[in-house]
C-alpha cells in the first residue's frame, strides 16, 4: 500500500491537472463563441457567391470555352487532397477524425490506381498523415503564426492551389475539414472544390425565375475572376468551420477530462482516508496490546 505522503502528493497533482483542464475548457468556450460568430458572419458572402456562380456557370457550362477551373480537366487521374486540421492538440478526436477520413479516401484512390497528392493545412494533420503518406504530401501550410484567421490566409492557400492546378499537377481537388454542427457534434466532411460541384437544382431554379443579366465585362471574364475567388471563399469557410469545430471539440474533451479528474480525486481521497484510518487503528492496537501486556 502506498504511504500517506505518496497519496497526498498524487491527489495534489490530479487537482492541479483538473485546474488546468478546467481553465482550458473555459478558454475554449470563450474562443468557440468568437469562432462561431466569425463563421456565421462569413455565411452571407458565401451564399451570395454561390448564387452568382450558379447563375453564370449555368450559362457558360455548355460552351466549349468554359474555364478549366469550372469544367475540370476531363480526367481524374491525379487527386489533390487538401486536409485542413488544427495547429494544436488536446481537442479530442477532432484531428484524427479528419485525418481518418482523408486517409480512407487516399487509400481508396490508391487502390483504384490513381495518384494522390496531399496538401496539409495545419501541423496536426501532417503529423498523423506523414506516417503513411510521407511521399504523397507535397506541401504543408502552417497557420501557427496566424493569430486571427483572415480572408487573406484563405486567399493565399487558394492561390497556391490554383497555381498548381494551372501547372497541371492534379485533376481533382477535394477539401477535408470538420463541419461545425454543434458543440458536441463536429462532422468530418469531404468537399470537392475543383471542379466545383454546383448546386444543380438551384442553378435550374435560378435560371427559370431570374431575369437575363447583362454582363460587364463578358461572362467568361467574370467567371475567370469569380472562380479563384470562389475557391478562396470555400477554403475560408472550411477554415472558419474548422476553427469553431476545434474549439467545440476541445471544450467537450476538456469537460470530460475535468470530470475524470474529479472522479479520480474522489477515489483517491477515499483510499487516502482508509489508509489513514487503518494506520490509526493499527497504532491503537499496538498501544492497547502494549498496555495489556504490562
Amino acid at each position: 500500500m502506498a504511504s500517506l505522503k505518496e497519496l497526498r502528493n498524487r491527489i495534489a497533482s490530479v487537482k492541479a491537472t483538473q485546474k488546468i483542464t478546467k481553465a482550458m475548457q473555459m478558454v475554449a468556450a470563450a474562443k468557440l463563441r468568437r469562432a462561431q460568430m466569425a463563421a456565421e458572419a462569413a455565411r452571407p458572402y458565401a451564399e451570395r457567391m454561390d448564387a452568382i456562380l450558379a447563375n453564370i456557370a449555368g450559362k457558360v457550362a455548355g460552351h466549349a470555352g468554359a474555364p478549366a477551373l469550372l469544367g475540370g480537366t476531363g480526367k481524374d487521374d491525379v487527386h489533390m487532397l487538401l486536409v485542413c486540421t488544427s495547429e494544436r492538440g488536446l481537442c479530442g478526436a477532432f484531428n484524427s477524425s479528419i485525418a481518418r477520413l482523408a486517409r480512407d479516401r487516399a487509400n481508396a484512390l490508391l487502390a483504384q490506381g490513381k495518384t494522390v497528392k496531399i496538401i496539409c493545412v495545419g501541423r496536426k494533420g501532417y503529423d498523423i498523415l506523414r506516417r503513411q503518406f510521407a511521399k504523397n504530401i507535397v506541401e504543408v501550410i502552417d497557420l501557427r503564426t496566424v493569430r486571427t484567421l483572415g480572408y487573406v490566409n484563405a486567399e493565399e492557400i487558394a492561390q497556391k492551389i490554383v497555381a498548381r492546378y494551372e501547372a497541371g499537377e492534379f485533376d481533382i481537388c477535394t477539401l477535408f475539414y470538420s463541419r461545425f454542427k454543434s458543440v458536441i457534434a463536429q462532422i468530418p466532411t469531404a468537399q470537392q472544390i475543383i471542379p466545383p460541384q454546383l448546386p444543380e437544382a438551384k442553378a435550374e431554379a435560378a435560371g427559370t425565375n431570374t431575369p437575363v443579366y447583362e454582363y460587364e465585362p463578358e461572362e467568361d471574364e467574370i467567371l475567370a475572376e469569380l472562380l479563384p475567388r470562389n475557391l478562396a471563399t470555400q477554403v475560408f469557410r472550411a477554415l472558419l468551420e474548422n476553427a469553431a469545430s476545434e474549439q467545440g471539440a476541445r471544450m467537450s474533451a476538456m469537460d470530460s477530462a475535468t470530470r475524470n479528474a474529479g472522479d479520480m480525486i474522489k477515489k483517491q481521497t477515499i483510499t487516502y482516508n482508509r489508509t489513514r484510518q487503518a494506520i490509526i487503528t493499527k497504532e491503537l492496537i499496538e498501544i492497547i496490546s502494549g498496555a495489556e501486556a504490562l
Partner: peptide, 19 residues
C-alpha cells in the same frame, strides 16, 4: 466602380453582373 467604368445604380436598374 465597375471594371469597365463607373456606373450608378438607381431603383429599377436592369439586372447586371459586373466585376
Amino acid at each position: 466602380p465597375g471594371a469597365e467604368g463607373e456606373f450608378t445604380v438607381l431603383p429599377m436598374h436592369t439586372p447586371v453582373v459586373s466585376t
